[in-house]
């Protein structure tokens, strides 16, 4: 029940925001936050719930952007069809690398996914005839329904955020179900989960494929919003950024994933005055959060709440 109150509040805020924020530039920033949120929500299922790290999700994001972008520019397919194709391509790829990759744990899993991401990045840079290589390609058409084109920032804002809300509802339902518990049990102890009848290998695969497909859809949104793609957007730094968003928000909390996307997605705006040196601040924030609050902001909130209740309860008893 509590979820529905939070959810209703969230929907009202999201829907109302463009009426307050009128500057198209800021609306644009919020579109990116929405795109990031799609990825971080699905990544938090993988990382925070199932406990499997991926430092290669920018690859799926990129595959989505390139698949949909190329289909629209080269084959003149509708972006909507491109979006579906992007999800399928990423899902199939995730399934095929998932078998060996998901057998690995911890550092090995991190390195393997980082390596995978780097290979995709090199591939996007090297296939110059197809993808334009390092300089990328442009003139990607926008989404449209009949004559209605999602051409301005506000329209696209609603498209992205409605998708986020749908994803959020689905994911919230899943995590509060037998499947959500199964995922968390993998994080807790794979051995115990197994003997309690959870097919851990299958669940890890399902959530990996799901998060790849969702990231790919986010990539397709990116391509048809910016109308230009180049490999630099999808490098290892982006993968790390995405994982950091999930962790900063609090990784076993879907709301935290959105919060992380909001904070780090808008951070460059605050750091504008620092120019190129935002990377320093970004690194420092990441280090401090990991050292002092590895549970993320959701963890801090929970701790504060506990403390608050802890001081209240004895007083009420007395």
């Amino acid at each position: 029940m509590k979820h529905y109150i939070s959810l209703a509040f969230f929907i009202v805020v999201v829907m109302g925001l463009p009426m307050i924020v009128r500057n198209p530039y800021y609306v644009g920033t919020l579109v990116f936050v929405g795109i990031y949120s799609l990825i971080t929500i699905s990544l938090s299922l993988l990382l925070g719930y199932a406990g499997q790290i991926s430092l290669g999700h920018a690859a799926f994001y990129g595959i989505g952007a390139y698949t949909s972008g190329l289909l629209a520019t080269r084959c003149h397919l509708s972006p909507w069809i491109g979006l579906v194709c992007a999800a399928v391509v990423a899902g199939v790829l995730a399934y095929s690398i998932g078998r060996p990759v998901l057998k690995l744990r911890g550092h090995y899993l991190a390195m393997a996914t980082l390596g995978f991401g780097e290979i995709v990045y090199i591939f996007l840079n090297s296939t110059v005839e197809l993808t334009g290589g390092p300089s990328g390609f442009g003139q990607i058409p926008r989404f449209a329904v009949g004559a209605f084109s999602f051409k301005n920032d506000t329209r696209f804002y609603y498209l992205v955020w409605v998708t986020v809300i749908i994803l959020l509802v689905l994911v919230l339902n899943v995590i509060n179900s037998r499947i959500g518990r199964a995922l968390r049990s993998i994080h807790g102890s794979e051995t115990a989960a197994n003997t309690m009848g959870v097919n851990t290998a299958s669940y890890k695969m399902q959530v990996f494929v799901f998060s790849a497909a969702v990231s790919s859809i986010a990539g397709a949104y990116y391509a048809h919003y910016v109308t230009f793609v180049s490999p630099a957007t999808f490098d290892a730094n982006t993968s790390i950024l995405l994982v950091t968003m999930v962790i900063i928000g609090g990784m076993s909390n879907v709301w935290g994933a959105i919060l992380g996307a909001l904070l780090l997605g808008t951070l460059p705006e605050y750091l504008r005055t620092f120019g190129d040196y935002d990377i320093l601040i970004y690194g420092a924030i990441m280090l401090i959060i990991m050292m002092f609050a590895p549970e993320g902001l959701a963890g801090i909130a929970a701790a504060v709440k506990r403390k608050f209740e802890g001081t209240l309860v004895p007083r009420a008893a007395a």
Binding site: A110, I240, T244, I247, Y277, L280, G283, M286, M291
Partner: peptide, 26 residues
């Protein structure tokens, strides 16, 4: 750190690398 998880260690060394990279660029 006291009893850090593998994930925390991974992210801390990554954060360290980003910080060092940033300082080097500076």
């Amino acid at each position: 750190l006291k009893n850090p998880s593998v994930l925390v260690l991974i992210m801390i060394t990554i954060a360290g690398s980003i910080l060092i990279k940033g300082l080097a660029m500076f």
